[in-house]
Amino acid sequence: MEIFYPITPAHYLVLSAVLFGIGVAGVLSRKNLFVALMSLELMLNAVNLSFVTFSRVNGDVTGHVVVLFVVAIAAAEACVGLAIVIALYRLKEKVDLDLFKSLQG
C-alpha cells in the first residue's frame, strides 16, 4: 500500500509520464490529422502537469509561468496546425496522413 498512499509529487509525475506516453502513442499510431493534433496537445499538457508538480515541490511559481507560456504557444500551434489541415483539405478533400506519400523515398 505504501506506493499508493500517501500521495506524493511522484504520483503526479508518473501520471504525467503516462499521459505523455498516451500522447506519443496517439501521434505515432493515428493517421487522422485531427487526432494527431489532439495527441500533440495531450503531450504538451502532460508536460504542464510535470511543471506544476515541480513548482509545488520547489515552492516556486516559475513553473506556473512556464505553463502559461506553454498554453499560449499551444494555442498558436493549434492555430497553425488547423490552417495546414484546411489547406490540405482544399487540395485533397481528405485529412488522412496516409494519403500524402508524394514526398517519400
Binding site: 506524493t8 511522484a10 509520464a17 503516462v18 506516453g21 498516451i22 502513442a25 509545488r56 520547489n58
Partner: peptide, 29 residues
C-alpha cells in the same frame, strides 16, 4: 504501436521518476 508506445512510456519514464526522483521521497516545500 499504441501498446508499445504506452509500455515504453510506462517502462522508461515512470519508474525513472518514481525511483530516482528525490521529489518522490522528500516532503514538498
Amino acid at each position: 504501436t499504441v501498446v508499445s508506445a504506452l509500455m515504453g512510456a510506462l517502462v522508461v519514464l515512470g519508474p525513472v521518476i518514481w525511483v530516482l526522483s528525490p521529489a518522490g521521497s522528500q516532503p514538498p516545500a
